[in-house]
Amino acid sequence: MNMENKALLSETQLLKDTLDLLWNRTLDQRKVCEQLRQENEYLEDYIDNMMSSSNVLEK
């Protein structure tokens, strides 16, 4: 294997590793976003319930 092929192989491996890292970060961020979405839904329901029980909008 000549030097050019070794350099190309090394660069290919580096690009693959970088792509794997980015993909894993993307999956982690999707999980975080989904968790935050669920928390927002919970808080919206909580606030709605609090407002309706205290009749804030009717005052």
Score class of each variant (00 low, 15 high):
residue 2 N to D: 08
residue 3 M to G: 02
residue 3 M to H: 10
residue 3 M to V: 11
residue 4 E to S: 03
residue 4 E to C: 05
residue 5 N to L: 08
residue 5 N to E: 14
residue 6 K to R: 14
residue 7 A to K: 13
residue 8 L to H: 12
residue 9 L to Y: 07
residue 10 S to H: 14
residue 10 S to V: 09
residue 11 E to P: 00
residue 12 T to A: 05
residue 12 T to N: 13
residue 12 T to I: 01
residue 12 T to L: 13
residue 12 T to G: 03
residue 12 T to S: 10
residue 13 Q to C: 09
residue 13 Q to N: 11
residue 15 L to A: 04
residue 15 L to F: 03
residue 15 L to W: 03
residue 16 K to V: 01
residue 16 K to F: 02
residue 16 K to G: 00
residue 16 K to Q: 07
residue 17 D to C: 10
residue 19 L to T: 05
residue 20 D to F: 06
residue 20 D to S: 03
residue 20 D to V: 00
residue 21 L to T: 10
residue 22 L to I: 14
residue 23 W to V: 02
residue 23 W to P: 00
residue 24 N to V: 08
residue 24 N to P: 00
residue 24 N to C: 04
residue 24 N to Y: 03
residue 24 N to F: 01
residue 25 R to N: 12
residue 25 R to G: 00
residue 25 R to Y: 02
residue 26 T to P: 00
residue 26 T to W: 00
residue 26 T to H: 02
residue 28 D to Q: 10
residue 28 D to L: 07
residue 28 D to Y: 13
residue 29 Q to T: 07
residue 29 Q to H: 12
residue 29 Q to V: 11
residue 29 Q to Y: 02
residue 30 R to Q: 04
residue 31 K to W: 04
residue 31 K to M: 08
residue 32 V to L: 08
residue 32 V to A: 00
residue 33 C to F: 08
residue 34 E to M: 06
residue 34 E to F: 09
residue 35 Q to V: 15
residue 36 L to R: 05
residue 37 R to C: 06
residue 37 R to P: 01
residue 37 R to H: 04
residue 38 Q to E: 13
residue 39 E to T: 08
residue 41 E to S: 12
residue 42 Y to V: 03
residue 42 Y to D: 07
residue 43 L to P: 00
residue 44 E to V: 15
residue 44 E to M: 15
residue 45 D to N: 12
residue 45 D to K: 11
residue 45 D to P: 00
residue 45 D to F: 06
residue 45 D to V: 09
residue 46 Y to H: 08
residue 46 Y to M: 03
residue 46 Y to D: 11
residue 46 Y to F: 13
residue 47 I to R: 05
residue 47 I to V: 14
residue 47 I to L: 06
residue 47 I to G: 04
residue 48 D to K: 06
residue 48 D to H: 14
residue 49 N to C: 14
residue 49 N to W: 15
residue 49 N to H: 12
residue 49 N to R: 14
residue 50 M to L: 12
residue 50 M to I: 15
residue 50 M to E: 13
residue 50 M to S: 10
residue 50 M to Q: 15
residue 51 M to K: 11
residue 52 S to Y: 10
residue 52 S to R: 09
residue 52 S to I: 15
residue 53 S to G: 12
residue 53 S to V: 03
residue 53 S to M: 08
residue 54 S to D: 06
residue 55 N to Y: 11
residue 55 N to L: 03
residue 56 V to Y: 01
residue 56 V to P: 01
residue 57 L to D: 13
residue 57 L to G: 09
residue 57 L to I: 14
residue 58 E to Y: 08
residue 58 E to M: 02
residue 58 E to T: 08
residue 59 K to Q: 11
residue 59 K to P: 01
